[in-house]
């Protein structure tokens, strides 16, 4: 009886407290989120062959990054500031690669304003809207990255406007710095970007993306995913990139398919099958030489335990030509194929 009485009093106190807070209308608190990731990689040629963006260290227990994001929204105005520390968020995230390899890197730093419930304005340095994969390991199913991701933009600084027609369609258009992955423009803000989102069916979303500029080149991208059942999801990314004349000739195109199936409450298996083709020209990619191609298969499992995800992954890449860059053990004899194993751990909060 005493316990029940105490419980009732506590409930009443809690209710009163909630009502008092409602009356005061306090601002939502500053929110912190982020992740930490670490990995072991072993390339079966005993040296790193596959040009994945992250998970680069051979036969080493290495770190990805600690990613820390601050977010707050008061009324219609919001900001996100996301910084990362560690190889994945520093030199491997490009902006610091050529200057200092040892400083932090900003992943997102933007402010936004909801002009109406359907119209939003955002400006700053943002993760790119292009493509299927992202820098944050929390946002990817596979730990290694696709050729399409590695060779596409990571971030774009700019100003964009997004209009939500309904739950099933939205349109974004924006103007961005003249180069990808830079905090400061080279000289102009003249890259145009647009994204059309459509949701043709329940669980199915598709994004048609365009990014074009006289220095950054032109990339057209389709990113779509369809949660066909609660257990089965199919994703697809297709893109075509042509380098700007100011930079050179060439580019790439490719397609990647991402089937994923949840086999148990905490276990999901996924395959990434990718075909990546480089265009003939002067521009080189992180991949096969210009005018060649590569096919890559990555089998990945996500084993979840609360906020922790263990990611074992096996990857096999097959180049079109012997001279596309892979070498056998010893690093001299060329070979068409390369394979690697990764075991990664990602903790998100």
């Amino acid at each position: 009886m005493k316990k029940k009485l105490l419980l009732l009093i506590t409930l009443a106190t809690f209710t009163y407290a909630v009502q008092a807070q409602d009356t005061a209308k306090t601002d939502p608190p500053l929110m912190i989120s982020g992740s930490v990731d670490t990995y072991f990689k072993y390339d079966f040629a005993k040296h790193s062959n596959i040009p994945t963006s992250f998970a680069s260290d051979q036969n080493s227990i290495s770190i990805g990054m600690i990613d820390l994001a601050l977010k707050k929204k008061v009324g219609k105005a919001a900001f996100v500031g996301e910084m990362s520390f560690g190889p994945r968020g520093q030199a491997q995230s490009i902006p610091n690669n050529a200057t200092d390899n040892n400083s932090y890197h900003v992943q997102n730093l933007y402010v936004s304003y909801d002009v109406t419930d359907k119209f939003n304005l955002t400006g700053g340095y943002m993760a790119t809207f292009m493509g299927y994969e992202v820098i944050s390991p929390v946002g990817n199913f596979n730990y290694s990255t696709s050729y399409l991701f590695t060779n596409g933009p990571f971030q774009n600084a700019g100003f964009k406007a997004t209009y939500l027609f309904s739950d099933k369609a939205s349109l974004m258009a924006g103007i961005f710095n003249d180069a990808w992955n830079v905090y400061t423009s080279v000289s102009k803000v003249n890259t145009f970007g647009a994204q059309l989102m459509v949701a043709p069916a329940k669980g199915w979303t598709a994004y048609i993306n365009l990014l074009t500029g006289t220095l950054s080149g032109t990339e057209i991208d389709l990113t779509t995913s369809y949660q066909i059942t609660n257990a089965f999801k199919l994703g697809l990314n297709a893109a075509d990139f042509s380098a700007a004349k100011a930079v050179g000739t060439g580019g790439f195109s490719g397609i990647a398919l991402y089937p994923q199936v949840a086999v148990a409450k905490d276990v999901t298996l996924g395959l990434r099958g990718e075909y990546f083709k480089t265009k003939t020209g002067s521009v080189t990619t992180l991949g096969p030489k210009p005018g060649s191609s590569v096919t890559a298969f990555t089998l990945t499992a996500n084993l979840k335990s609360g906020p922790l995800t263990l990611i074992p992954e096996l990857r096999l890449d097959n180049n079109k030509s012997l001279s596309d860059g892979f070498t056998k053990s010893g690093g001299i004899t060329p070979t068409k194929s390369a394979s690697q194993f990764i075991l990664a751990a990602v903790y998100s909060f």
Binding site: S33, A69, K71, V80, E82, N108, Y110, M126, A127, T128, F129, V134, S136, V138, G139, A199, K202, G203, W204, T205, S225, Y226, Q227, I228, N230, K233, K265, G306, S348
Partner: peptide, 26 residues
């Protein structure tokens, strides 16, 4: 799920009746 801009957004297509929450989550 967290999107690339650090916003929390719905995972389209996944719907779990709350009676079955314990079979899908801790």
């Amino acid at each position: 799920t967290r999107d690339r801009f650090d916003n929390m957004v719905p995972m389209p297509g996944i719907e779990v009746p709350i009676e079955k929450l314990a079979s899908k989550y801790s």
